[in-house]
């Protein structure tokens, strides 16, 4: 076993255990903290895949945002510990469905030739600058992701404007 495999198995175990813990905790804050552990494990996956940019963004966006989620959990819910039922009446159906989806995904991916292929050595520095230029620079006269970038920018601008409009003092 190579060191990378050891890290992979440890990360997988942490992700699975904390994911199960997250959905079974009665305490909202505990659930959020286990969600952080799960997402951190996923960031470790990205590091193993040499996608350092994605790993860092994963931590920046998800773990940074969950801190705020915890605040709202504490501030806005009267009871952080929920005494209600953990499962509702659709629990068994959901279990069957998720097992079916898992089997389906596994079968679909195992016939895909890339599934067991070894990834080529990635040039991470070039990958980041490629990612940056792909958003704006044209390739063969075609702007590759320019439209998507602009749409996303407008989408992000709208909540900003909306927030200012809502928060503005009435004159």
């Amino acid at each position: 076993m190579t060191p990378l495999e050891v890290i992979f198995w440890i990360a997988s175990a942490v992700i699975l255990i904390s994911a199960i813990m997250m959905v079974t905790r009665r305490n909202l804050v505990h659930a959020a903290l286990f969600l952080i552990v799960t997402l951190f494990g996923v960031a470790v996956y990205y590091v193993l895949l040499e996608a350092s940019f994605l790993a860092v963004v994963q931590i920046l966006v998800y773990i940074g945002a969950i801190a705020i989620l915890v605040i709202f959990a504490v501030m806005l819910t009267r009871q952080v510990t929920n005494p209600g039922q953990l499962f509702n009446k659709h629990a068994s159906l959901a279990l069957v469905m998720s097992i079916l989806v898992f089997i389906g995904l596994y079968l679909a991916l195992s016939v895909w030739p890339e599934f067991s292929a070894v990834a080529p050595e990635a040039d991470t520095a070039a990958a980041i600058s490629n990612l940056g230029t792909a958003f704006f620079v044209e390739e063969d006269g075609q702007p590759v992701y320019l439209l998507a970038t602009m749409t996303a920018s407008v989408l992000l601008l709208i909540p900003l404007v909306g927030a200012i409009f809502v928060a503005r003092q009435k004159e």
Binding site: V56, V57, L60, I63, G64, I71, V74
Partner: peptide
């Protein structure tokens, strides 16, 4: 020697926020 060093520094700052929240709660 991380290629995303600056972004990484921004990202790990969120753990500091978490520590404050966990301690307080």
């Amino acid at each position: 020697d991380l290629d995303v060093g600056v972004l990484y520094i921004g990202a790990v700052g969120s753990f500091g926020v978490l520590a404050v929240l966990m301690a307080g709660w």
